[in-house]
Design a protein around this nucleic acid. Structure first.
Length: 231
DNA sequence: CGTGTTTGACCAGCGC
DNA sequence: GCGCTGGTCAAACACG
């Protein structure tokens, strides 16, 4: 996925008053399928817009709260429940994007949230998991979204506990993609992390599914800045 | 010893 | 139909 190739179709957003912990507002319904979105985070271009999460499965836009911290990174980190382990490693959120598609299919119809979305196609091979039996792949219908951060660390601490289950070198990328799964029982949320080949400082983190628990359940330290259970 | 990571192999879908 | 590619599994390994 190459963010620079994303389109520029951007509907109007609204932003929320300052807050830290209020839940996300009702999603904005798009008049049309969002396809590829590029969310400008430069306020010179789009004053007041600090970020957006896009649930492509439901064609919904979730504007991120504007925070007193004053940057999109804070907004996105709060919205995502992301915390940084140290202040030095505070990621710089430069974009929150819909998971568009694979790099080879940017701009194709497969990006739409209806029909044949090939990017997140089914990967729950073996949800049944019994080796030797035919493994069934199903089309993904879980909400998912990705965002870019500029960070020295690959894996952002979002308050949840993740178990790495795979790493893959993907085409057109110099850096391997890592696959993580939430360790909480009965929680099937997955995320993948990769670095941009064009800018190794940029980390693409993609979440899939919704947590069935709060970060508190995974991490009792209580250091997380927010507990969104909807991711 | 329990838990998490690494890594090669396998599988399914898509494009040609 | 075949090859390519992404996603996942699971055994081996590392570490506390």
């Amino acid at each position: 996925m190459e963010g620079g190739q994303l389109g520029t179709c951007l509907p109007n957003f609204y932003h929320l008053p300052d807050h830290h912990s209020m839940p996300l507002p009702p999603p904005l319904q798009l008049p049309c399928h969002p396809k590829l979105l590029h969310v400008p985070f430069d306020e010179e271009d789009q004053p007041g817009i600090h970020g957006v999460m896009l649930s492509s499965d439901h064609c919904e836009l979730y504007p991120l709260p504007v925070l007193p911290l004053g940057n999109s990174a804070a907004a996105a980190t709060v919205a995502m429940g992301i915390k940084s382990t140290t202040t030095d490693s505070m990621p710089n959120i430069v974009g929150v994007e819909e998971v568009a598609t694979s790099v080879t299919k940017v701009g194709s119809e497969s990006n739409t949230c209806n029909g044949s979305n090939t990017w997140w196609r089914g990967s729950t091979m073996a949800a049944a998991g019994e080796k030797g039996k035919m493994k069934i792949r199903r089309k993904m219908r879980e909400p998912r979204f990705c965002f870019q951060t500029r960070s020295e660390v690959d894996v952002l601490d979002d308050g949840y506990k993740w178990r790495k289950y795979g790493q893959k070198v993907v085409k057109n990328s110099l850096h391997p993609r890592s696959y993580f799964r939430c360790t909480h029982s009965n929680c099937r949320v997955k995320k993948r992390v990769e670095r941009l080949s064009t800018d190794c400082r940029m980390v693409i983190t993609t979440y899939e599914g919704r947590h069935t628990h709060s970060p508190c359940d995974d991490n009792s330290s209580g250091e997380h800045i927010n507990c969104f259970s909807s991711f």
